[in-house]
Design a binder for these strands. Structure first.
Lengths: 187, 187
DNA sequence: TTTGTTTTTTGACAAATGTCAAAAATTAAA
DNA sequence: TTTAATTTTTGACATTTGTCAAAAAACAAA
């Protein structure tokens, strides 16, 4: 738990009171490899903080699983669209490794926001970071070649290559598994 | 100005006090078609609220201008990466039509956040909306064909087609102008 | 109008990536 | 181990999209 709070401080330093309040609202979850945290069609009512492990978000398209994001330790994890809008999720969240997560319900989080401006600030800052991270991925997806995207991944997120099956990485990069295999063979 | 505040209420309803404070911190800007609001290499220290008009964000790649986003009335506009991190912007912001904007400096906004929890909430909610909007664009960029992306644009944002030159739209969709022209000819 | 400029379209071809099928390599299970 | 299942690689070919050059169309200025 202390480890979790330290990670959160990287976003915004909380006062003792707010930190305690947050702590009281978090529930620990442990799941094993391949277990499902969220199934498409359900509303995602929780925000998770990933303490250890790895997971992925994927959806089904023409019978294929499209992995479009990964979560690793220190990440906030949820189906953002569903969590924010309250609509059913179009994606699934599945564990790639066994994970320790801390969960907070949307209503509980809203209550925390109401009582602790600091916590809402933390979240605002987290969204800022996630926004520019996504913006960068978007620009890569739209304007770079498959090879460039793979090179960038090696440099910026080598842990992904080491911990995630190739098939997941291919769709994460927006290319077929065969193309990824051919790109790799050139290195 | 009242119009602006009404738009902002669509994100989160502000109390009178916060609304007045916000109002006092906004500066009106009017610019003509083709004028530049931000030049790459400069730090973007302002968040803009676009009351009327249209503009685009673009950067230079191999001598070509890549338009990667548009702003229209009611949009928050800034170079998010630069505004958030304080680093020089990699992009330019240029008017497509004459615009009326309301500007607020980053320091002023931070002060508003400090004094008005409500305004920070407004911003948190705005980031939520912008995050899921970007997420949707990302998925389209990565996993849909050029034709699908164009069809989606016609359905979801017909105003873009009507108000923006084709060349800008092509790079917004992540395709060459020639390909866009060929896609259009099929309709 | 008439002319000049810019934008959009078209044609020919090249490059990048996808698809399907099968082989090879790796991992897990008995 | 040995076998079975899964993952990754390879080959052949199809499809999508890009690039370059030129023509056509649309727009703006004189």
């Amino acid at each position: 738990m202390q480890q979790l709070l330290n990670h959160i401080k990287a976003y915004h330093r909380l006062g003792t009171e707010a930190e305690n309040a947050l702590q009281d609202c978090l529930t620990q979850i442990s799941l094993n490899k391949n277990e499902i945290l969220l199934t498409q069609g359900n509303v995602c009512r929780h925000l998770y903080f990933l303490e250890t492990g790895a997971l992925r978000g994927f959806y089904n398209l023409d019978g294929k699983e499209i992995t479009h994001w990964f979560g690793f330790e220190k990440d906030f994890v949820t189906s953002f669209h569903s969590f924010i809008t309250g609509e059913p999720a179009v994606e699934n969240i599945q564990l790639i490794e066994g994970c320790t997560l801390w969960a907070i319900g949307k209503e509980t989080l809203t209550e925390l926001f109401n009582h602790h401006h600091e916590i809402e600030r933390l979240m605002r800052i987290a969204y800022e970071k996630y926004y520019i991270r996504l913006e960068e991925r978007f620009v890569n997806a739209q304007f770079k070649t498959a090879t460039e995207r793979y090179e960038e991944l090696i440099i910026q997120s080598p842990h992904i290559i080491e911990r995630v099956p190739l098939g997941y990485i291919a769709s994460y990069l927006g290319i077929s598994q065969e193309t990824l295999s051919r790109i790799r063979s050139k290195f």
